[in-house]
Nucleic acid binder design. Structure first.
Lengths: 252, 252
DNA sequence: CGCCCTCTTGAAATTGTTCAATAGAGGTGG
DNA sequence: CCACCTCTATTGAACAATTTCAAGAGGGCG
């Protein structure tokens, strides 16, 4: 559970030339997922002002980003890798409320403190914005605030979809929905949707779907034996019969 | 399942004097829940501009407000009564994703269509805003957009809490959480939190908590027999041992 | 090569569901 | 005003899905 946080300003003071050359005048101009982020609506000049307040964070798999209850001083945009966000009950039961991929935004909080914990699943890099400074920039660029509202609306719709899954779907339906969710998100990002990468553990998947690891495992086996999926090495899953999976998932 | 929609402009053209006298120059100036709504950050002059685009809707219990998949042309603020919002699976299984009380906002959608259905539980009144016109007003009053973002953030936090409930809590914990949620929301609105009003059916409660009506009923009975609650007439529930309920609910 | 951790598989136990029947509450019409 | 009708809530018993407990298999890393 090592935490590895690198501030790009710090790094570049050690090796500025390399950092600058790799990234160009501003690392943001090379950002491949800009259109997914809160920076999407900004032109180059405006984006430079965002770049002025951003720092860069790298996490290795398993490293925490922040914990529920900590002061919510920063918000983040994922630039690569996968994270999970989760909430705990007093006795340790856990609900993973989401997995975050490149382009996803996290840290939105209305209260002073984070309402959930965030932890890297794989090696991740993120852009970090001080919340205060971002709020000031948002007053200058209402487009960013609109973008954030748009992101929040999308997350809300996804949360409602997840409530439907948690409250009303069977284990089989949950797993089918989950695989299709991952596949669709991979496709949006120009990555392979079959085989799709499933980098998180069975425990994480169970905690996301409201199941135990054993049930997740058994259900994968069951789908595999029905020739709906194939389990490949390195956490890859081939969706051999997407249509059937969609029928099982119940509309996705 | 009668739908009763009254446009306040229409009503006042029939009986303008009465309508004006009851409400004052603008019905909004008499609004008792303004501080909960999207209008909260506006001064009187600004609020008048909001009033110019608002219309008033009344629904009787059981009447639908809109259905999933309909064009999302309006957003609403509840001014009195209780509504439920829900999603359906193709075979009819239902997940109630929330109950809305006075001051609550609904209709936020990023896509063109509503992502869920909304239906009155009790007799309700709402303020209706054409989405297009509200978007224009938001550009003039960024405060409203900020307010909306703040509302969306709160809803997102509530949605995550509900995912924790749906995915990881037992029936007993779910019912305890639900009663405390209703009680807290009633208290926020200056209403009695014990006995708390529980106007929705056992089926609605079950569909909100991911349980069947039978399990809801049995769990109420069980809590009653443990002297944690008392079931009074007219859907009132006395929380006789709030501390114990909070322990059961697992932090609320 | 072996250890550790995760995943898989099996069998028993449990929670909540399903099916079925009764009780109660609210509304309607005689 | 009461009887009846209907809809919702409650209760019971059998059933099923998922969990829990337990053991073994596979895979990656030192």
């Amino acid at each position: 559970m090592d935490l590895a946080v690198f501030d790009i300003n710090h790094v570049s003071s050690l090796a500025p030339a390399v950092s600058r050359e790799e990234a160009g005048p501003s690392p943001c101009s090379a950002c491949k997922i800009r259109n997914l982020t809160i920076c999407a609506p900004l032109n180059d000049a405006e984006q430079a002002q965002m770049a002025a307040i951003v720092s860069h964070v790298e996490l290795e798999g398993g490293a925490p980003l922040f914990d529920e209850g900590e002061p919510a001083d920063h918000v983040y945009n994922v630039t690569s890798g996968t994270l999970k966000v989760y909430k705990l009950l007093p006795d340790g039961r856990r609900q993973v409320t989401g997995f975050l991929l490149a382009g996803d935004f996290l840290g939105l909080a209305n209260e002073d403190d984070y309402a959930y914990s965030a932890e890297a699943v794989t090696h991740c890099s993120l852009c970090r914005f001080p919340r205060r400074k971002l709020e000031i920039l948002m007053q200058r660029f209402p487009k960013v605030e609109q973008r954030l509202l748009s992101i929040a609306s999308n997350e809300l719709a996804a949360a409602q979809e997840q409530m439907l899954l948690l409250g009303r779907k069977t284990a089989r339906e949950k797993i089918a929905s989950f695989l299709l969710l991952l596949a669709n998100r991979a496709r949006q990002r120009g990555m392979s949707d079959s085989p799709v990468s499933v980098p998180m553990s069975r425990t994480d998947i169970g905690d996301f779907l409201g199941l135990t690891t054993e049930t997740v495992s058994r259900t994968f086996t069951q789908l595999k034996q029905g020739n709906l999926i194939r389990l490949l090495p390195n956490g890859l899953v081939e969706l051999s019969a997407r249509e059937d999976l969609e029928d099982i998932a119940g509309g996705f």
